[in-house]
Write a protein that binds this DNA or RNA. Sequence first.
DNA 1: TAGGTATGATGAACCGTTTCCATCCAGGCG
DNA 2: CGCCTGGATGGAAACGGTTCATCATACCTA
Lengths: 335, 335
Amino acid sequence: MPKVGIRDVAKLAGVSTGTVSRVLNDHPSVTNELRVRVRSIIEQLGYMPDPSARSMRSKVSRLIGIVIPDLTNPFFSELVQSAEQAAARHGYNVIVMTSFDHASKEADRIGQLTSRKVDGILLVPSNDFHTLKLPKALPIVIVDRLLPGYSGIAADHRSGVRLGVEHLVKLGHRRIGFISGPKDSVPANDRLTGYLDAMRLALDGEQDAVPLIAEAAFDYESGRSAGNYLLARARHERPTAIFASSDQQAIGCMRAAHDLGIPIPAALSIVGFDGIPLASMTIPRLTTVKQPIQEIAAAAVAVLLGAESRTGLGKPLLLPCEICEGETTCAPQPD
Amino acid sequence: MPKVGIRDVAKLAGVSTGTVSRVLNDHPSVTNELRVRVRSIIEQLGYMPDPSARSMRSKVSRLIGIVIPDLTNPFFSELVQSAEQAAARHGYNVIVMTSFDHASKEADRIGQLTSRKVDGILLVPSNDFHTLKLPKALPIVIVDRLLPGYSGIAADHRSGVRLGVEHLVKLGHRRIGFISGPKDSVPANDRLTGYLDAMRLALDGEQDAVPLIAEAAFDYESGRSAGNYLLARARHERPTAIFASSDQQAIGCMRAAHDLGIPIPAALSIVGFDGIPLASMTIPRLTTVKQPIQEIAAAAVAVLLGAESRTGLGKPLLLPCEICEGETTCAPQPD
DNA sequence: TAGGTATGATGAACCGTTTCCATCCAGGCG
DNA sequence: CGCCTGGATGGAAACGGTTCATCATACCTA
């Protein structure tokens, strides 16, 4: 069967191709009656405009690029999925690429997307992101790992952690340990700052309220050894609660406590950060601070598509986190 | 800066645009000397051909579509990541879409990809896939959830499970329980068949070798209750080993055993299926049958791009699984 | 040496839309 | 009533490559 083009539609409708095109693009200056007639012909013929031809002339591809460090990371996979959804609602499709946290790969991917003429790029920068020159012509929105000097969208890690720590304080905890993320990670430092904020503001002056920090990577195993480190002291010196910078860390920490014979939450409350699906699958279910991934993705797409005007170098947009109470927190037991 | 087009390159090189085009596409009938000269001009000008213009005439988009049920599922996210890698090696990019296991969404996505003129589609069909009419014109390869009557690529679930069960048999186990997947899932049934194969072949005639099966969904919680069910009997009747149809099930089952005070692997060996990253993060590390995800993805892309000739309705390509020994298996203890 | 042929390069047509410009027509106004 | 204004439509150029029919050149062969 010969493919049906815009000319076929035009001929059958008895109008010019220009008019069909205007109907296709909802151009205001088409009579309603005509619009309806052309639409029905389009329907009848099963005509679908060719995106290449369209994009060649109009310079709009209805395609956005997503570059993330690692799709295997549940946080990013959920982010991508949400972004795809959001883009679809605007009639856009997404091209996904992985940088493997490698700056040169990242630059290459961005170049590919640029030459593909995508209408925008959603970028989660790799950790060894240095001073990548971003293509000036193309809308780029940086997500999650905000770069100083660039605008972007992320969860408000700092306030989120503070929320979680204050939750523990409200329950009566004073000796609250913190498992930090890697030192060179921007979000990790934001989270640490949130912890210090909360400790200072809520507990200033109280003698027990000394920050107690273990640095670790974000993964499970690191969380476990950080937990072991924090818990390796006499009972009345040991923290009664631990806030972990990631859910994976928190789960590792639960494991450490369990192995030490410390019951959760009776003798130790634990709060995680991220809100990945796994968090609700542990036993007991992990209390965690959930990042608003869907909202982040939706906002990023909205910015890219210019639904919200942004000039590029504004200040970052921070979205609030939310605490998800599970079963790993309760008031501290008397010694 | 005015964008540099093929004409600029041609003019500067003193050749025609046709020649430049043929250099771009490695057409054989260009002098080597000329090829080099044009290439250097291209480099010098930083010229990048416009994919839309290119695709409009040549009908090749260098884009492939991927439709999966759920990107949040670690198996699929790894599949997508591997496919993206494989496609990139061929100079292709991928458009990712999620069907949420919904047949109508799936049909819609496939339609979008078709009208985008992708060069092929990698499809993991949704579970309520009925008799979706696949666009005849477009190469489609079905992955993982094979459909009877269609060609496709998947891990050899049946042999893989058999491998795992035989591993347990070799260790000396006889009472081997099996946590199955949902009845209406094709891979779940393949896995069940593999279990039955192994039990029949290896243990035929032995009195203890009675299949012991619990049906469950693939998730963690279902695995836990299936584990509880299988383990709720007197010690000498209880299975000494359990094979779970997914790693998540296996981890849930570990939890169940732990809660019942059954030490792993001393009193119960457990083997999972899939080989997701989480499997190596449990304590003890889960022994599991790993699906060759990368190979599946690479093969699927190769088929799509016609690197391997395909007739469309050939027989499915099954790739072998591999056992990853962890710490959840050992010989059964004497009663 | 003339005719045939293989090879490399050319120029123009072509792909299927969008968009610009000219045209036409209806209605308002002086 | 003629002129002007502005909205609706038609017609064709333009977008930036690829490809096809042609052509020039040089090489072979009879």
